[in-house]
Amino acid sequence: MTTRVPASPFRLSAGAKCAIPLGLLFLVAFVAPLSIVLGFSFLPERTFGFTGELTLENYEHFFTEGYYGTFLWTFGLAFAATCCCLVISYPVAYGLARVFGGWAAIITLIFVFPIFVSENLRLVGWTLVLLKGGGVLAYTINMLTGFETGTLLYGPGSILLGLTYVYLPFMIFPMTLGISMVPKEQVEAASDLGANRLQIWREVELPIAMPGILIGVLLTFVLAVGAIAEAKILGGQSIVPIAHSIQHEFTYAQNWPLGSAISVLAIVLVGIMVFFVLSRVDLDRLLGGR
């Protein structure tokens, strides 16, 4: 005697069901707005609805009207900030994962805390440090050496400082996660097989820690590309970041299509990087240690 239990044809797996709420949010508040932006980027100047011929003129304007300068500065500064964060973070992350032991939790907390103080406020703090004449830095240098210093504010340098400063924790934590994935036995095995410190680092530690480092690089870079406050507060108006150009077109200039075209180009450039990095990272391993 044999009975078959029929499988219902329209049954979603439990996992798929759980993904629905986030999926809906993703569709309504992420995919839809980006589709609109993409759509507008192909419409003629100053249209506010989906009417008119499709055109590539907005993309032409991007190049003829000098917006690429904005891109070069923004991406260049983001890249420089990422490099700075990378160099500054590595010893800290290594320490958190390997050296600090019982202190690691407290030190982590010390690094987490500033994230929860508004980034604008901390940038205001930097302006007070870097101010000409009576700023903390100028004053200290004057007291110690007697030299008068000019202002360090309002230039690419101060923006770079701001970006590096604000996004440093976003590099440190993924990097720590990555470095702590390196099994101690593998380092010992490499050492046992005759590798020196540098070889161990290059052949064992770095490749295994790479997913965490890549996530950190990506996070820092993307956040820096989307930053506006650093350029405004620390940079004066010396450099116009991408976000500011888009904002200008969307609001003051009331030119949605051009703003959309700039957005699309920014998204595509960032998207290529994200795709490149995420295709190299196993999330189950990084988050769950599987």
Partner: peptide
């Protein structure tokens, strides 16, 4: 998460 926030904010504003 890996999306420039300001660009996202502006896209939502447009939306």
């Amino acid at each position: 998460i890996f999306f420039p926030q300001a660009v996202l904010g502006l896209a939502l504003l447009l939306w």
